[in-house]
Design a protein around this nucleic acid. Structure first.
Lengths: 197, 197
DNA sequence: AAAGACTCTACCCGAAAGGATAGGATTGCC
DNA sequence: GGCAATCCTATCCTTTCGGGTAGAGTCTTT
C-alpha cells in the first residue's frame, strides 16, 4: 500500500510504531536510528512518507530535516516529536515538512495522519499553526541564548561570537522580553522547554 | 501468561508498547494515561507488572511511583523513561522500584526485561546503578535549585522558603560546586538535563 | 526614497550575583 | 562526650546583570 520510513533513535518507539503501521496494512515500513542511516535508505529508493524524530542524532536542528526532504522529494517528510515549539514548527513547514505527529497522538489518529500526508495534505495540530511572526527571536538573539544556556557570562559570549559585551547585554534584554523571562536563567529554562536551542 | 499495565501519557508510546507486549503473548496488557487512572485499575485487580513513565501526570517526582508500588505490592513496578538521573534512579530503587526500561531499549530487550522483572529480578542498566553517594545535593540545596530553575532571584527564593538571602547565596555556591556549574544558570541547565528537579 | 527589521556600540546607574571567611546551631552517630 | 554533616547567619568585597537612553550602520521591503 505504501512505503514508509520511521526514523527515531529510541529503538522502542521506532520499532513499535513501525510494527503498528505494518499491522495496519502498510506494505513496507522500514526504520532508521539516525539521519545518516535514513538518508542511506532513501538513496536506495525513495519513500512515500518519512516520519522523522526531531531529537535524533544527525538532525542538528532542522538541517537534517532539510536533507531528508531534499533526498525524498517530492514525497512528504513529517516530524515525530514529543514537544516542539511554534518557532521550530513554523521553520519546519517553511522548508517543506509535511506535518507533525505528536507522540501524544493516539494510534487511530496516527493512522489518519499518515493517510492524510500520503495523500499530499499537511497534517499539523492547530496549536502549532496559529501564530504570528510575533515574538520570534532574531539570529543574534538565538546566538546569545545558546551562550546563556551553556552557562556563559555576557563577557564570554561576546568574546565567542565576536561582539562587545554591551551588545550582548542588549540582546539578552530584548530576547528576555520576547520570551517573557524574568532573567537569563529563566530565559534559559524557557528555551530548554520550548526546544529553541 | 501475565497481567501487565503500561502507564504513559504519550498515547502513541503507550498503545504501541502495549500492543507489542500483547503480540508477544502476554495475556492482559492494559494501559493508562496518568497515575490516577493507573491506581484505579490497580484497585480493581493488581498487576503482575506495571511499567510507568517517569514524566507522567500525577507522578510528582517519585511520589506517584511510591503510590503505585504501595498499591500493587508485592508485584513489581518499573519505570519507563527516556533519560533518568542516577540520583532519581537510586531513589526509585530505594522505594522499591523493580527496575528501569529506557526508551532506547530494543523490542527484544524489552521483552527480556519484562520477563526478568516478572520473575522478581531487578532490571536496570549498569550506568544507573554504579554511583557513590558523592556529590549528592542536600535538601536545602535542592530547594534552592528548584527556585533557580523557576527563574527566581536569591531574594525571592529566601522569602519563599523562609531564609535569609545570604543563606540562599551560600546554598547556591555550594550547590554549584557540587554540580560543577559555572553559575546559577549553568546549574539550572544541569539540573534540567539530569532531571534533578 | 522611505520605512522597518536587525544590528552594533556607548554611557550611565542600581540591583543582583559570586566569592571568601567566620561563627553558631542542630542533628545523628560512634 | 566527641565527631561529622547539615544548616543558618553575618560581614566584606568584586564582578556581573538588568535596565534606560541614544546614536548609527546594514539590509530588505514597499
Amino acid at each position: 500500500m505504501a512505503r514508509i520510513l520511521v526514523a527515531d533513535d529510541h529503538a522502542l518507539v521506532r520499532e513499535t510504531i513501525a510494527a503498528y503501521l505494518e499491522a495496519e496494512g502498510f506494505q513496507e515500513v522500514l526504520s532508521a536510528a539516525d539521519v545518516d542511516h535514513a538518508l542511506g535508505l532513501v538513496a536506495k529508493a525513495p519513500f512515500d512518507l518519512i516520519l522523522a524524530d526531531y531529537d535524533m542524532p544527525g538532525m542538528d536542528g532542522l538541517a537534517g530535516l532539510a536533507r531528508l526532504i531534499a533526498a525524498n522529494r517530492p514525497h512528504p517528510v513529517a516530524l515525530i516529536s514529543g514537544a516542539i515549539s511554534p518557532e521550530v514548527a513554523a521553520q519546519a513547514l517553511e522548508i517543506g515538512a509535511a506535518g507533525f505527529v505528536p507522540k501524544t497522538l493516539g494510534s487511530r489518529n496516527l493512522v489518519a495522519a499518515v493517510k492524510a500526508m500520503l495523500a499530499g495534505e499537511v497534517f499539523a495540530p492547530m496549536s502549532l499553526i496559529q501564530r504570528g511572526p510575533e515574538g520570534l527571536l532574531s539570529g543574534r538573539e538565538l546566538d546569545v541564548l545558546r551562550g546563556i544556556c551553556a552557562g556563559k557570562s555576557n563577557k564570554e559570549i561576546a568574546r565567542d561570537i565576536g561582539l562587545q559585551e554591551v551588545t550582548v547585554k542588549l540582546h539578552v534584554k530584548t530576547m528576555s522580553r520576547k520570551l517573557v523571562a524574568k532573567n537569563r536563567t529563566h530565559a534559559a529554562m524557557i528555551a530548554r522547554d520550548r526546544k529553541l536551542v
